[in-house]
């Protein structure tokens, strides 16, 4: 717990560096939901290779790193109803809002985008309320 924030800060700087690289070289905002969404719904057909390669890197690099450190844990719930409901909500919500934690959060807040700041307040607020209700009041997660 005590050293977690150091890993958090270090990992965060690495995440921001990835976003800066994509911006300064390709002129693109690094938003995970936009990159994935444009690939699956066909709206990003013109640059589908870039999107696919970004997603490939995103999946493969942690796979290699996790293998080296002897595996990693997601500690994801095994409640299938929660998993499917959450997946649908995250998919619909991020596309409706045109961004998620990386696009609105990292890339939006860092340019002081009002949209990014407002979106981040709403998803953190909704997330906090959801944990309060489903963990502490209902006790299902």
């Amino acid at each position: 717990m005590q050293v977690d924030w150091i890993f958090g800060l270090f990992g965060g700087i690495i995440i921001g560096t990835a976003a800066a690289l994509l911006l300064l070289f390709n002129g693109r905002v690094m938003g995970a939901s936009g990159i994935i969404g444009g690939l699956v719904d066909g709206s990003g057909k013109s640059d589908w290779k870039e999107r696919a390669l970004f997603i490939a890197g995103l999946a493969i690099a942690p796979a290699i790193a996790a293998a080296f450190q002897g595996g990693a844990q997601t500690n994801l719930t095994d409640n299938y109803i929660a998993i499917i409901a959450a997946g649908l909500l995250v998919g619909i919500g991020t596309r409706l809002a045109n961004g998620c934690t990386s696009g609105h959060g990292v890339c939006g807040i860092s340019r002081l985008s009002l949209r990014g700041i407002v979106a981040t307040c709403f998803y953190i607020g909704a997330g906090g309320l959801t944990v309060l209700i489903f963990k502490h009041l209902l006790g299902v997660i």
Binding site: A32, A85, A86, I92, L96, A97, V131
Partner: peptide
């Protein structure tokens, strides 16, 4: 933006995963 971020936050809180 408001509705989408709220729905996203609900799913995010429910299991702790976002797209990245």
């Amino acid at each position: 933006l408001i509705i989408g971020s709220t729905l996203f936050g609900m799913g995010w809180g429910l299991v702790g995963l976002c797209p990245g």
